[in-house]
Design a protein around this nucleic acid. Structure first.
Lengths: 357, 357
DNA sequence: CCACAAAATGAAACCCGTTTCACAAAAGGG
DNA sequence: CCCTTTTGTGAAACGGGTTTCATTTTGTGG
């Protein structure tokens, strides 16, 4: 059956559509009697104004696009939950855009993210979203070929774009980002304070700024303590539990092994925990681990993960609020920084007394 | 700056908007020369047709609403990833609608889900989505006051609605659901085969059919083996790690404690693992655990969780395909059942020889 | 009771596409 | 060369709301 429209209501109420619109939006005074009549009809027919038509004239849709790299990485649902909460309060609905691609075996592939992000960007603009938030992904490209950067900048001229936790080099797009370098420093300093001197790093991707920045923090902390960074103890190329396990196993198999590992995210740390367990290496007795992100699972593991908390929930909230302001064309700070903090739990302890080498 | 429209293109190309529309949609032959001219202008201006306007006439939006209870429960991102993959292929974009509410302390509350689901339902219809999928939540209400059930039915008259993993009593809405009872039986039979006789159950909510059905499966398996169900070993009222830990601690504190626990989901099993660890109880040596859902974290814990796999990814895919068919008005099986299977990992083992009581 | 502001309402334009209908031009068939 | 298709194109209506502008009522102060 054909859905009922303002015209139907208007006809039946013996008024013009303008009047119906007025009671719908409370945009001008309507005689109580008339209003009651219209309201009654609206209820009677369960009339719901067509949001497409409304948005078409109003030039605002109350829709937002949220682009993220992988919803199955628990960090993102956490951010999303914060965002959702706030966005809902502010009256927005949002499209979820996951840029991951999977092959036949359902392995997560990150190589086509760039393409996906670009596709989603234009899709979302066609859909006339009021704003877009992008988190992670190839936006982080340190040396982009320029294409995506340009596209994002282009997009941000047409619709507010907010970058989360990713800094786009050579652009001045609004963003909310954790101080990645500082977070990494915190983690490594913690290990050093406990007495560790042999520290490895696993995870991340070399083309992402978050990785680069965390690596910087790692190096800074090591340098500050006059410790050497051993190249063979720096293993990048992933963000997953499996990779974490693989890399840690590799480290544990070396003739000389680190007494502590800084993991680029909690997922990797969980993998590290497994590798250590498989290898019969006690954590934190023989090996200390620090993660990054403080996902819920960090406190679910045994032992519980020492990690760097980004307050992901809060980042999401902030994002919604900031984007809302951008949409309303209010001024917002161009770069908001969130300060990571160390959450010391059970995977870090002083190293064993050094065994003679 | 004002976005460019078909009219702008038409004017500049010296044709009517109809012709522009034709090249845009390839809906009728256009002289090559004209077409080229128009295409050139489209590229020149980076023209993107306004999806709102298009959808308004076409009466299809390519938008879907996905309603779920809690994105931070890793089961849902898993389903969602499958859905996303398939939906994207089919050309849909979707609104994510999380029905959870949180209080000031960010605790997840499930008590207002009903309200949220109902709100989202009408919101989505206003937005003119082509279809809606609902997973979990209060749709599971075994004895609804009728309101939501009625609303969902009402909605499904206007737009295809697909229920996932939840059966709405007294209605015939399309749905894809795992055989919950069977899954639970599988879990409990596994324990029984290992030799367990003292089996407890934790988790779920008494008003949800999934809980009820799993409980049925539990009872059936116990009865089949002529084992008694001890009321004090059946603890419902949650789905979280924290609750799992709490309930398990409670069980372990009892004078007589079960040798195995069937957990209503993996999150609870992970909590159980923690409780056991805290209490110095070895798993699976002194206590066997079976989870439910087979979330990724189930194989990340130490020891790895024995659990019931629902193939969440596949459910999501199915959902997208089925909904697409429903939208295209093709026939679909009213009820699709997915068969759970046992994934035996490391948290189950034969019980210790019974100690004299 | 009048003047004037405020309230109440309708007609019509507008938002931006798609689609129907009509018609002219080109092409194919006999 | 005429008739019938097919191709190519435009005018106008449509989808379902909002908004502007004009006009009619109604209310209030003097």
């Amino acid at each position: 059956m054909r859905p009922v429209t303002v015209y139907d209501i208007a006809r039946e109420a013996n008024v013009s559509v303008a009047t119906v619109s007025r009671v719908l939006n409370n945009t001008a005074p309507v005689k109580k009697e008339t209003r009651d009549r219209i309201v009654a009809l609206i209820n009677k027919h369960q009339f719901q104004p067509n949001a497409l038509a409304r948005s078409l004239t109003r030039k605002e849709t109350g829709m937002i696009g949220f682009i993220l790299p992988d919803i199955t990485n628990p960090f993102f649902p956490e951010v999303l939950a914060g965002f959702d909460h706030e966005a809902r309060k502010l009256g927005y609905t949002y499209f979820l855009c996951d840029t991951i691609s999977t092959n036949e075996e359902n392995d997560r592939l990150y190589d086509r993210q760039y393409e996906r992000e670009s596709q989603y960007l234009s899709l979302l603009m066609e859909k006339q979203v009021d704003g877009i938030v992008m988190i992670g992904g190839r936006v982080d490209l340190a040396k982009p070929d320029g294409a995506l950067v340009q596209e994002v900048e282009e997009a941000s001229k047409r619709v507010p774009v907010l970058l989360l936790n990713g800094s786009l080099p050579r652009t001045n797009l609004n963003r909310i980002a954790a101080d990645q370098k500082f977070g990494a420093q915190l983690a490594v300093q913690h290990l050093i304070e406990l007495g560790h001197r042999d520290i490895g790093v696993i995870g991340g991707f070399n083309h992402m700024t978050n990785t680069l920045q965390r690596l910087q923090g790692f190096r800074a902390a090591m340098k500050e303590a006059s410790l050497d960074v051993r190249k063979e103890w720096v293993l990048t190329g992933g963000f997953s539990v499996e990779k974490g396990q693989e890399f840690t196993a590799k480290l544990l198999n070396m003739k000389r092994r680190p007494s502590a590992i800084f993991c680029m995210n909690d997922l990797m740390a969980i993998g590290a925990l497994k590798a250590a367990h498989r290898a019969g290496v006690n954590v934190p007795g023989e090996l200390s681990l620090v993660g990054y992100d403080d996902i819920p699972q960090a406190s679910h593991s045994i032992p519980e993960l020492t990690t760097i908390s980004l307050n992901s929930h809060e980042i999401g909230r902030q994002a919604a609020q900031t984007l809302d302001k951008m949409i309303a064309d209010r001024k917002v700070p161009q770069h908001q920084t969130v300060v990571p903090r160390l959450v010391a739990r059970e995977t870090t302890a002083p190293p064993r007394p050094a065994s003679p080498e």
